[in-house]
Amino acid sequence: MSRRTAAEHRLGWLLCAPAVIAMLLVTAWPMLYALWLSMFRYDLRFPAEREFIGFDNYLAVLGSEVWWQALSNTVFITVASVAVELVLGFVFALIMHHAIIGRRLVRTSLLVPYGIITVVAAMSWRFAFDPTTGFINALLGLEGAWLAERGSAFFVIIQTEVWKTTSFMALLLLAGLTLVPDDLLRAARVDGADAVQRFFRVTLPLMRSVIMVALLFRTLDAFRIFDTVFVQTRGSQNTESLSIVGYNALITRLNLGLGSAVSVLIFLCVLALAAIYIKGFGIDLSQRKEP
């Protein structure tokens, strides 16, 4: 190795070091610390009872109704919202792709849900569905308290998530749509494909990698859902998500041992999801343009 390349390697590492160290210190280190804490009985309200108990916390979590309920709630919210977002995102993207006048207006409007604070969005929808302050019941001629029942509470939560994040999906998909050359669609038309066949046999396959990346990001994001649930139901009506369970154990009840076990399990779930996407659906993130 020449001196010049050695110097270049050093400079490269030097420039990356602050960012890498920060990322390791604030994620990897606490994660390991959580792993350590999860092996202890450790409740901040009773610090004296701290004691190494091995995997007992995990057994406690995995043996509890709350965990499995929260897991299934989270999976349900994730699957439902991501599925709706994908379809709606495609519709929005196609509208933006085809609208000649007003494309800018649509794009700007869609950025508003993306930019708005999640807590504010959740509040706005909560008030909108609220039977005393809201306009939705009046509009639909209904009287129920949406957030007081499990099914309708899920509906409100999922619809808030969809509203907030469909923009992201739509903008990614729009960018993907513009990558499909116009000539290919014209060629397909001449080859005898109708609009539906053009979409499914040309547009969709060409957008595969964009769709997969968008789904991966959105799935992992939805799986971590916290803000909306916290603001709208705070987990009541049996709508707790995994993040709510973790928060309650760690911050509300100050049970660091048990809470850390929940944390580690959530981390493993996310890891598994990412692995499924990357291996299972063959998203090759490294295949993207080498910087």
């Binding site: 604030v26 994620t27 606490p30 994660m31 610390y33 959580a34 804490l37 990001f217 992992l220 799986f223 971590r224 916290f226 995994l242 993040s243 973790g246 928060y247 760690l250 911050i251 660091l256 809470g259 850390s260 944390s263 580690v264 959530i266 981390f267 996310v270 990412a274």
Partner: peptide, 11 residues
């Protein structure tokens, strides 16, 4: 992709 809830306890 990291879940923030996993590190709030340690932090």
């Amino acid at each position: 992709m990291f879940p923030p809830v996993s590190i709030i306890g340690p932090l």
